[in-house]
Design a protein around this nucleic acid. Structure first.
Lengths: 213, 213
DNA sequence: TAGTTATATTTCACTGGACGCAATTTTGCA
DNA sequence: TGCAAAATTGCGTCCAGTGAAATATAACTA
């Protein structure tokens, strides 16, 4: 990666400039109030060029979404012996939320706030979530062909994602601040584990995963 | 409902005219190809007036979404003695899918098709689904305070919705036609029931609901 | 290094959804 | 019939997104 053609390096810099300009303006003036022209001006680029980096205004809030899905997939693939589907899912959540600061970080906080205020952003977020959900279910079924039918995998993944989003929903319903990221992750893990106990019983061994936080 | 002022009746007729014009044009020429001007012209109304009936172009595909959520809520409230949360959910699905032809019907088929092709429509659909999911979870937790914490309710509802959407996803992934609605409902019930067995065991009695189709 | 190809970016014009507002028509009712 | 409220229309405006041609810049080749 150190050896990149000048073109690639420049392109990466421009992309980053667009992102920082966008998040900056979104934070300062609001999402709907910020026009693509504003972002283009701040990034010292033409409005038309933005679309050569991002497909839409909403996507400015979801860069590297593929990477995050990929991380979860990898965590599923690299399962430890003795882990059942539920353990794998829990582990995938902890590891992937650790690496990509998807719950902490400046843009993450902004995204969480806009998801509950701007319909377009919410729609895009749910689309990403749905795609991720399907992808995860597919891989989960592939890794545990004996334990899970494709449909059970879809249900289990649905339960998992549903539990996580439900918890986050309850969380941010009243208290705005994302609090301490570590504590949030711990709560998320504990609560998801509890919500999935029905499956934990039916599946294989139930190791405590608290140490992984 | 029989006694409506002339104004209300006329408004209802216009609303219906807009809907039929929209679905008609969508079916014939495609969603993105149909402009609001086209719809307005076909409904013999001004483009501006459409926004006094529907908030957006996508919403033309989701009329009475509140009513469908309400039906599910009612089905939850009218639970039979001895039913656990899972049974209530299954029953709510069967009854609500029977009354509002949400899986059959002309507009439903159109909606299902557009959900997988037009991003904006998919986003709107997922938003509706998410809202419904949260609402159902809330009511479920209220009805079964002993069995379900708010979080467990969120997880269970997530599993339920996840299973249903997963099944529908697998279904329409290859075969386009919605097939026989009765058969589809039966498959949906059977498969969802199977996907939720982990919860069925932990909850109260497990009556067979096949007769309710 | 000059010249050529490939790729990025700009510029401009345009479409279409959404919204605000004032004027105008329609409807309900006294 | 006449008047107030509500519905509708007809503007104009904003902005996201797209297409196409022109221009600029990097990469490659001889």
């Amino acid at each position: 990666m150190v050896f990149m053609t000048l073109r690639e390096r420049k392109r990466l810099r421009t992309r980053q400039a667009i992102l920082t300009a966008a998040t900056d303006l979104f934070e300062r003036h609001g999402y709907t109030e910020t026009t693509l022209d504003d972002i283009a001006a701040a990034a010292e680029i033409s409005k038309r060029a933005i679309f050569s980096y991002f497909a839409s205004k909403e996507d400015l809030l979801f860069p590297e979404s593929d990477a995050r899905i990929g991380a979860a997939i990898d965590a599923i693939a690299a399962r430890q012996p003795g882990d059942g589907p539920v353990q794998v899912l829990l582990r995938a959540m902890t590891t992937s939320t650790q690496e990509s600061d998807d719950l902490t970080g400046r843009r993450a906080a902004l995204r969480l706030r806009l998801m509950r205020t701007v319909p377009a952003v919410r729609g895009r977020a749910l689309q990403h979530q749905f795609d991720a959900q399907r992808e995860i279910a597919r891989h989960l079924a592939a890794v545990f062909p004996a334990d899970l039918s494709p449909i059970s995998a879809a249900a289990l993944t649905g339960a998992f994602i549903g539990a996580v989003t439900g918890v986050l929903d309850l969380f941010f319903e009243e208290q705005e601040p994302p609090q301490d990221p570590v504590e949030l992750r711990a709560t998320l893990l504990r609560v998801t584990q509890m919500a999935l106990t029905p499956w934990l019983d039916t599946s294989s061994g139930e190791r405590d995963l608290s140490s992984d936080i």
